[in-house]
Design a protein around this nucleic acid. Structure first.
Length: 690
DNA sequence: TCTTGGTTCAT
DNA sequence: TGAACCAAG
């Protein structure tokens, strides 16, 4: 490759030296300057939560020492604008190349594209790579060359691709250090004083860093993997892989995971080990879901803030901060839900099953706006991952074509006996119920008074009554759904009659703000109130609001002319969905031709694009561009000359989903108002078992 | 072997 | 709720 020039390797969520194509490219090209830029403000509302920042800190120092032992250190920079920082790096080091690995969340897609353009304009050669997925999103398409819309089909295709995922790369043997004398590292601050105490506990349970990730992987594959299928019903986390935070920060490569698991798979298949095979399939499926989350994010950049199926726009969410608080604190009166929420609160971790239970309860029983829940997960989960969490919440909320039906409520009582038959999980996290016999552990409200007394429980006092009855919730949900469909129909009619006036302007559909700061209070406080009062419509619930809530809105859109209520979810024809922000204007020819492999973005006057504005006060790149989908079946771009630009997804496909323009004008800047909401968890109050 | 009714489980 | 699976007939 290149002639001993100096290259910058930009680390992000690929904090490993093994199987890191960007690093490998840098090493191949000559001397390397490894950089990490900490610019959390760029993430807008998704400023990483406390536990997540703790992990990042450890992981970076781990990476730094690995790099040092290979010959160079990690240069760290505090910044509010990654791209400017990169330009400064170039200036102060004379680097002639930039290498990095792809990310697929909307902000990264825009930022990385901008980085590529700015640096290219300075004469820097920029190359980017796939280090996060088995296959790039644009490689996986159906027969017609369109993206899949259901997970099963997507995953089946992944597993039967005509070519295997690339084999993982070995770590470099050594790295020639570039000259960094003129760009000293900044000391990055990831935690404040108040967070240190809580963070200290994390180190007991977790070991961030790529080589630890590697150990965790080996341990899992040689141990719990075999029984993964057997154990999946248990609420207890002990049998999970514990890889998700490692994977989130790219400490271990998915390709390597896949590779090693496949080896086991063949082994077990040869032995006729049925349990092993089942387990492998199941585990790979969860890897597949992670892939799918990137796939969805790439194809539908708004899926973290908007329902993909349009009718959900019209769901009348219950806006009740008391409910929200009860849920966060694990005081809903449903033991399984409460145990889960306490575990999350105390450890930043939750078994996947229980994530489904608590989020489903959140959306269907409490009928709180799903993005509140998603934001809370973001703030508290150790493995908080925007794409995965968005997929999960959309699944629960029934806004995916293959998601759960919205109108079926899972009963936490029954789920309790399913996932935690002996009540051990509940007893561990809800000490106040520890003495309750198993017979009543998942429905204490039915227990005879004498039993409660013997167990030292006073319902409504030291453990709450159910915050909402399941029957009441069912009725309320039916009601809400019928309202939703009415509105949906009305809106559709309005669109057809051309009388559509813009729902975004009606106050009824105004965005629902995230509750003012939601710190986890020091004390748990009194039991939440029981049934909410009826409102003026005689709905058995408190205030409802329409429109999907605006909570963590990364971007705000100025509405494109015609399309915000193309809420005909499945069949509407129309080409006006604006989902492609900004490829830039000055795309050089080579890039365009490469980019076309990704179905990229070029001029077509028919497509109106919304103008994209970052509202976080970080940048203001209101770029405009037009889009066209080319039907190229994705050509593989192994050495990656191109940053994946936002995929324009086929209109035929996209029309199944709500237009990714929600018609809501600028949201109030979220971050300034809620900058504290991530530092919330209080450990000391909770039992630390195990 | 084909049917059927009961279970289990949803990405 | 419905598809997929399994045991008994």
């Amino acid at each position: 490759m290149s002639s001993g020039g100096c290259s910058i390797v930009w680390f992000r969520r690929d904090l490993r030296v093994e199987d890191n194509p960007a690093l490998a490219a840098g090493v191949r090209a000559g001397s390397v300057i490894a950089v990490f830029i900490w610019a959390p403000e760029e993430e807008g509302p998704y400023y990483p939560g406390r536990v997540s920042r703790w992990w990042l800190k450890q992981s970076l120092s781990h990476l730094d020492s690995s790099l040092r032992s290979l010959g160079t250190g990690l240069v760290t920079k505090r910044s509010t604008d990654s791209v400017s920082s990169l330009l400064e790096f170039v200036k102060s080091t004379g680097a002639t190349q930039l290498f990095f690995n792809h990310l697929y969340d909307p902000l990264s897609l825009i930022r990385d594209h901008r980085a590529k353009q700015s640096l290219t304009a300075q004469g820097v050669t920029v190359k980017s790579f796939n280090a996060d997925l088995l296959y790039e999103p644009w490689e996986v398409n159906d027969e017609q060359g369109r993206p899949f819309t259901t997970f099963a089909a997507f995953w089946e295709r992944c597993l039967s691709m005509p070519y295997d995922p690339e084999s993982p790369l070995l770590p470099p043997k050594r790295i020639i250090a570039g000259d960094v004398s003129r760009c000293p590292s900044d000391t990055l601050v990831f935690e404040d004083e108040s967070e240190k105490g809580s963070n200290a506990l994390l180190a007991r349970a977790w070991s961030p860093g790529w080589s630890n990730a590697d150990k965790a992987l080996t341990t899992f594959i040689n141990g719990p993997l075999l029984e993964y299928s057997e154990n999946r019903r248990k609420a207890d986390s002990a049998t999970t892989s514990f890889l998700s935070p490692h994977l989130h920060f790219g400490e271990v490569s998915v390709k390597k995971v896949f590779h090693l698991v496949r080896i086991k798979q063949m082994l077990w298949a040869n032995e006729g080990n049925k349990a092993g095979e089942d387990s492998v399939n199941l585990f790979l499926e969860s890897i597949g879901l992670r892939e799918y989350s990137r796939y969805m994010s790439f194809n539908h950049p708004y899926s973290h803030e908007q329902p993909l199926l349009g009718h959900l726009k019209f769901f009348p969410w219950v806006v009740d901060e008391t409910y929200f608080k009860a849920w966060r604190q694990g005081r809903t009166g449903y033991p399984l839900v409460d145990a889960g929420m306490r575990e999350l609160w105390a450890t930043g971790w939750l078994h996947d099953r229980i994530r489904v239970v608590v989020s489903s309860f959140f959306v269907k029983v409490l009928q709180l706006p799903w993005r509140w829940g998603m934001k809370y997960f973001w703030d508290t989960l150790l493995d908080a991952d925007l794409e995965s969490d968005a997929l999960g919440w959309q699944y629960i909320t029934g806004t995916l074509p293959d998601g759960r039906e919205f109108d079926r409520i899972d009963n936490p009582q029954f789920e309790g006996y399913k996932f935690d038959p002996q009540g051990e999980y509940v007893r561990r996290w809800l000490p106040e119920l520890a003495r309750l016999p198993t017979e009543w552990i998942h429905h204490p409200w039915n227990a005879p008074e004498s039993v409660l007394q013997a167990a030292g429980i006073e319902l409504g006092s030291n453990y709450p009554m159910p915050i909402v009855g399941i029957d009441a919730a069912k009725a309320r949900l039916q009601e809400a759904l019928s309202i939703m469909w009415q509105h949906e129909a009305a809106s559709r009619a309005a669109v057809e009659n051309g009388t559509e006036e813009g729902l975004g302007e009606s106050s009824e559909f105004a965005p629902i703000a995230f509750p003012q700061d939601v710190p986890m209070e020091e004390d748990i406080g009194p039991a939440p109130r029981p049934e909410p009062p009826r409102n003026q419509n005689n709905l058995p619930g408190p205030t409802r609001r329409y429109e999907d809530q605006m909570v963590p809105s990364i971007t705000s859109l100025v509405r494109a002319e015609e399309d915000e209520t193309s809420s005909d979810i499945r069949n509407s024809v129309g080409n006006s969905r604006g989902e492609v922000p900004a490829t830039n204007v000055n795309v050089n020819t080579r890039e365009v031709s490469n980019a076309r492999a990704f179905q990229t973005v070029r001029g077509n006057a028919n497509n109106l694009l919304p103008h994209y504005n970052f509202t976080m006060g970080i940048h203001n790149t209101a770029e405009e561009s037009t889009a066209e989908s080319s039907s190229t079946t994705g050509r593989r771009e192994r050495s990656g000359g191109v940053v994946p630009v936002w995929s324009p997804a086929h209109s035929a496909y996209s029309d199944q989903f709500v237009g990714e323009d929600n018609g809501i004008a600028a949201s109030p800047s979220y971050l300034p108002m809620h900058s504290q909401s991530h530092q919330i968890v209080n450990w000391r109050r909770l039992s630390q078992t195990g």
